[in-house]
């Protein structure tokens, strides 16, 4: 279970998180929506301990991680897989080396077994046979899939997605959404995604949280989000820049 309690975070004078509290159950699929630059990715990075809150706490399976050192965090992070917005593949390595990174470092598995697991993970993201390619040779959508394969190959319990469909064409974006759902169903992982793509949010999320001005402004099922009368949520869902242009 993931729990955030009253998270505050500022960068200089700019307050990004102003008291975020949330709770995500095991096996659940939660999407955080909100404006670009509104702190969604910052929130996600707090959940895995890449950033530390100014005040507040993050609790993963009953363990408080907000004040842990980087070394203590390494153990907790083993429960997580994360797909970055830019995929963040290691560009000096091949696809196979990227995907097998954790397995090779843990050195528990035989090279042959690592090869098999890497092939299996690439299979799951529908990209077989590209093991020897370098990240620079791949398209944006392929990179994201390799990033996803790298995040799930060691069977984490929680997978975090940072803007999984941003910068992709609608068809590729749809296939990524499909993959996220497949991964959740096949591996029974807890899924947390942040996005501003409402189509994607509706497809992946069982529950949607809206982050607005540093707080969770709204929480509900996709149906509730699309039918609510809340003006802020409405405007975001419809993609309208200003209330004066309200015409739906």
């Amino acid at each position: 279970m993931i729990e955030a309690r009253d998270l505050h975070k500022s960068f200089g004078a700019h307050q990004v998180l102003a008291g975020v509290t949330l709770r995500i159950q095991k096996g659940e699929s939660v999407v955080v929506i909100g404006r670009s630059g509104g702190g969604k990715s910052i929130l996600l990075k707090h959940l895995i301990g890449l950033l530390q809150p100014d005040t507040g706490d993050v609790i993963i399976d009953g363990e408080s991680i907000a004040r842990m050192s980087e070394r203590q965090l390494l153990r907790v992070r083993r429960k997580f897989g994360m797909l970055f917005q830019s995929a963040a593949l290691f560009d000096s390595m091949t696809v196979a080396e990227n995907v097998g990174f954790v397995l090779r470092r843990e050195a528990r598995s035989h090279p042959e077994e690592i090869r098999r697991k890497v092939a299996e993970a690439l299979d799951m993201v529908e990209l077989s046979g590209i093991q020897e390619k370098k990240p620079a040779e791949l398209s944006g959508g392929m990179r994201k899939r390799v990033g996803l394969a790298r995040a799930i190959v060691y069977r984490p319990e929680i997978v975090l997605y940072d803007e999984p469909t941003t910068g992709l064409d609608p068809i590729v974006a749809d296939s990524i959404d499909q993959l996220i759902v497949n991964v959740r169903e096949r591996l029974q992982v807890t899924t947390v995604a942040v996005t501003h793509d409402m189509r994607s949010a509706r497809r992946i999320g069982q529950r949607i949280l809206m982050l607005h001005e540093g707080r969770i402004h709204f929480e509900g099922t996709p149906e509730e989000v699309f039918s609510t009368k809340d003006p802020i949520v409405n405007r975001f869902v419809a993609g309208v820049a200003d209330t004066r242009n309200h015409n739906f």
Partner: peptide
Amino acid sequence: TMRVTEQIDALRTLAAHPIDY
């Protein structure tokens, strides 16, 4: 470059300490 392209963050999520690695 690794830092600005989030590769160092990715390393940290993959349970590798950037200083060690």
